[in-house]
Design a protein around this nucleic acid. Sequence first.
DNA 1: AATGAATGAGATTTCATTCAT
DNA 2: TATGAATGAAATCTCATTCAT
Lengths: 280, 280, 280, 280
Amino acid sequence: MPQLRDVRKIKKKSVAPSAKTPAGTVPGAIRPRDMQRSRAEILRAAVSEFAAAGFEGARVDRIAARAGLNKVLIYRYFGNKEDLYLAVLREVYSLLGEVERDILEHNVRGAELIEQLIDGYFDFLQRREDLVNILLWENLLGTKYLQKLPHEAVGRSTLSTLEELIRDGQTEGVFRADFDPHQLVVSLLVFSFGNFANRHSLSLLFGRDMAGAEWMEKRRAETKRVIFGYILPNKPGVLTDAPDTRSKPGVTTDAPDTRSKPGVTTDAPSASGTPSTPDK
Amino acid sequence: MPQLRDVRKIKKKSVAPSAKTPAGTVPGAIRPRDMQRSRAEILRAAVSEFAAAGFEGARVDRIAARAGLNKVLIYRYFGNKEDLYLAVLREVYSLLGEVERDILEHNVRGAELIEQLIDGYFDFLQRREDLVNILLWENLLGTKYLQKLPHEAVGRSTLSTLEELIRDGQTEGVFRADFDPHQLVVSLLVFSFGNFANRHSLSLLFGRDMAGAEWMEKRRAETKRVIFGYILPNKPGVLTDAPDTRSKPGVTTDAPDTRSKPGVTTDAPSASGTPSTPDK
Amino acid sequence: MPQLRDVRKIKKKSVAPSAKTPAGTVPGAIRPRDMQRSRAEILRAAVSEFAAAGFEGARVDRIAARAGLNKVLIYRYFGNKEDLYLAVLREVYSLLGEVERDILEHNVRGAELIEQLIDGYFDFLQRREDLVNILLWENLLGTKYLQKLPHEAVGRSTLSTLEELIRDGQTEGVFRADFDPHQLVVSLLVFSFGNFANRHSLSLLFGRDMAGAEWMEKRRAETKRVIFGYILPNKPGVLTDAPDTRSKPGVTTDAPDTRSKPGVTTDAPSASGTPSTPDK
Amino acid sequence: MPQLRDVRKIKKKSVAPSAKTPAGTVPGAIRPRDMQRSRAEILRAAVSEFAAAGFEGARVDRIAARAGLNKVLIYRYFGNKEDLYLAVLREVYSLLGEVERDILEHNVRGAELIEQLIDGYFDFLQRREDLVNILLWENLLGTKYLQKLPHEAVGRSTLSTLEELIRDGQTEGVFRADFDPHQLVVSLLVFSFGNFANRHSLSLLFGRDMAGAEWMEKRRAETKRVIFGYILPNKPGVLTDAPDTRSKPGVTTDAPDTRSKPGVTTDAPSASGTPSTPDK
DNA sequence: AATGAATGAGATTTCATTCAT
DNA sequence: TATGAATGAAATCTCATTCAT
C-alpha cells in the first residue's frame, strides 16, 4: 500500500560506499540490464509523489529519493518532469480500465454485475488511494495534461459495453426499465468516487474518521443499497418490511429483496424498519 | 461566474489611468483608497487563483494582478501566501455552511427538505465552481491547511441538525425507517459533490461534456430520483408502473409518485418503462 | 531612557479619526508651525531606531511610527534614509563632544579632572545607551558614513585640550611623569567604552548581568581604581592614606585605602588587603 | 588577514574552467567534489561577509561569490541565512575560547599568565579582526542570535579557571590582595577589546590611524603597563623613579620593576620620567 | 550509475521611495 | 499632513535541469 502523505522529508539514502556495488557483481563492472527495473522503480516512485503532492507540488528530488535512484536517471529515462507525469497518467488510466475489464471478462450479468462493479470501484479506491488522487489532481487541472495523451490511452470502451449490458438487463426485466443506463453508469462512478474526493474534509466537518477502511465499508454498503433500491424492480408484497437477508460483504444472495439487495453488507439499519444503531 | 482556468498569463494591467475605476462603479465616482475594499478585492482574487491552481500552483503575482492591486498590499493585509490561503479557506467554509443554514431557516421538512438540499448543493456546485475546487484541492492535501483553522471555522453544526430532521421524518413516516440518517446526509453530500470531483476527467472518458450546466441538470435530476427512490416509502399498488408525473425542475408536485418523486426533473426515461431517448 | 531593543514590532498608531485634529485647532485648519517640532521628533525617533538596528536594520516605516508622524515627512525633511542617518550621526557626535566640553568649562584639574571625565563617560554611556550604540554600529561599518560628514562635525578639539591639561598635571607633579598623556586619553575612552561594547555578549559568557546599572557602577569604580593606580604618584609612606579628594560621583568611602584614590566608589575589596566579598 | 571592507561588489567569478582550482591547491591536482571542503569554504566566506557587513548587511550572494561556490549549496548545507549565521557564531566563540585554553594549558602563572593573556587577546584581536567584528555586531543586536545557541557553545569555563588562578596568585603574594579577580578578568577583556570596538571612529576623532598594527602595539604595551600597575605589589624604594627596563615586546624580564613590569613593550615614555616623545 | 556541483529561472518576501487623495 | 496605494528594485529561497567526475 502506497504511502501518500507526510512523505515530504525523504532524505537521500546514505549507503556506505562499499554498498554501492550490488552484491554479486564485480566492483568496477557496470551493473547490467537494470534499466528496466530502474525505469519501473522511478515510475512507481513518481506515482507516489504525484499522488501525494500533485504536479506542481511534486519534487523531482523526492521522486529520485523514493526510487532510491539518481535524479539523472529520471531525465535519462523520461525526459523531464512533465513527461514523467504523463507516463504516470498513462499508467493510472491503464490500471483504472482494468477494473471494468476484469469484471466484464467474467461474463457476470444483472444485479451481480452491478455489485461487482461497485465492489470493483471501492476496492480500487481503497487499495489504490494514490491512483485516485492522481485522477483528482488531474481533474482539478482541468485535464491539462491528460489531454496531451492519445485518446486511446484514456477513453474507455468498457464503459459503453457496460451501458449495453445494463440496457439488456432492462429489456430482460432484471432491472427496472425507467432509468437511463448511461446515467446509471455515471452514477456508479460518481457515487463511488465521491466518497473519496472529500473524505479528509468530511472527516473534519463531521468530526469523525471518514477516510478509514471501516467507514468505507459502510459507504460501500450504503451505496449498494441506494443503487439497488433504484434499479431493481420493486416486488410487491415483499416491500419495505421484508426481512433483510443479511450477508457478508461480497457475498451475493440469490434472492435479493427490496432493500439490501444482492450481497449487501448491512451494518446499517436493521430489517425491522427502525434503524437500530445508526453509526455515530 | 468566476473564471477558473487559463488565467495563468495575466499580466500587469496596463490600463489607462481613467480605466482604474473597477467594474461596477460609476466612472468618475470616487473610488476611495479603501482598505476594506482592497482587502476584499484581494480575497476575491485569491479565491479565483487558488481555485484554479491550488496552493502550490497559485502565484501571488497573479493574485495581485487579478485584484488589480499591488502585490505589497497582499503582504500588508494578509501576511504571506499561506495566511492568505487560510483566509480563503475560512471564506469557503463559511459560504458552504450557508447553503444548509439558508435551507434550515425556512423550516422545510420531509421530502421538500431533501430536495432543497440537493438543489442547494447543486446550485452551490454550479455557481461556485471555484469554491468547490478549493475544497477538492484542500482535500488532496489531506486538509494540511484546513487543520490550522480553528475548529469553529470548519465544523458545521448544521449537519447534525439535518440528521435530526431526517430522523424526525422517519418517525413521522414521511421517510422510510430503514436507512441511517447519518449515512443519508453523507450520501447527499457525496452524490452531489462526486459529480464535480471528476467532471473533466469523465468528460474525456466518455467523450462528451460532463462539466456543463446542461449535463449537471441531468445529474441533479438523476440524483434526486436515486435518493428519493431510497428514502421515500414505496406506495403499494402505484409502484413501478405508475405514470411519471413529469414536471419542470424545481417544481414540487404535490403527489409524488413512485419514481420521480417531489418535483424531480425528469428528462430521463419516459413512463412507458423503456427509456425513450437516453441522452447520448 | 530610550528603549533600544525589541522595538521591531511597532505598529502604526491607529488613532480615532476624530483625534486627527490636534486639540485646540479648528478641524480643517492646517496645523501651523509644527515643522520644527516634527523634524525634531523624527530625529529623535531615528536615533532610537538606528541605535537599535543599525543602518541596514533600521526601517523607515518604524522611524515614522516611532515619531508618530507620516513617512512622507521623513523624505520631505531629510531627503532619504542615508541623509537622515547622517543627521543622526551629526547629532550623536555633537552630544558626545559635550561631555568633555562640560567638564573643561568647569576648570577642574588634576585627579578631579580625570575622575570627572570617567564619570562623564560612564554617565553618558549609561544614560545614552542609544548614542553609544550608534557609535559602535558606525565603527563596524568602518565609519562609512561618518566620513561623509564635514570634519568639524566629528573631530573633537576637546581631546587635545585634555592632553595638555594632563601634561600640565605631570609637570606640576600631580600625575606621575612616566606615562604618555595621549595614551591616557585614549585609555580613558577605551576603558570606559569597552565596558559597553560587549556587555551583552559578556553577560552570556559569564552567565550574569553585565549590562545593568549596578554592574556598571562596579566597573566605573574598578576603572577609576585602575586608572588612578596608574597615573597618581605612589607616595612612599603616605601611600594608603593619601587625602581623598572627595567628589560627588558615587558613594564616598569613609576609609579609603591605597587603592581607591580620589572619591572612588569601592564596593570592591576592603582596605584590609583581602577583598572581602568579590562580587560573584 | 581577512579582507573586511569594500568587498561589496564581488561578482560571479567568470574564470576560465581551468582556473577552478581553488587557491592553495596544485593546479591539475584533483579537487574532489568534497562536501566537507565546500561546507568549510562556505563557512569561511560567511565569516568574512558577516564580519564586514553584519547579519542584515550581509548578502548570501556575496558569501557564495566569496566561497567560489554556488548559492544553492549554502542552502543545502546550512538551511538559510540565519542558520548559516548561527554556525558562524558557533565558530567564532569556539575560536575565541581557544585563546584562553591555549594559555591555560601551558601552566603559566602569576604575572606571566596575565601578560600572556593580554598578548593572547591582542594577538587574537589583531589577527582575527573579522571574528572580533562579529562579536561586536552580535552584541549590538543584544545577542539576538547568540541566545539561540546552546549554552555550551557560548559559555566559557576557562574564565572561572582564570579567576581562580588569579586568586591563587593573590594568596601567594604574587599579586596585590586588594583587587577583585573577577573584575580583573573582565578588565582584561574590556581593556583589550575596547581598543577595537571604536578604533575607526577614534581614528577619525583623533585624526590619526588608530586601527593599524603599529598603534595597536602601543596600546598593547599601555594596557600591560596599566594592568600591571594595578595588580603587582608596589615595591617601596624602587618606586616611580626606577629606570625602566626596556625590553623587546614579548620578552619577559626577570626582574620587573615598578612600572614596566613583566616583559612590557615600552615604546612609551622614556626612562627619565618625562615621556620624551609622546607619539603624536 | 552516483555524487556533488552549477545554472538559470522564477517565486516569495521585503524595502525604500513616490504618488494621489 | 495623513492615508492608502503604487513602483521598482532587490534579497532570500526554491526548483528543474544539466554538467563533471
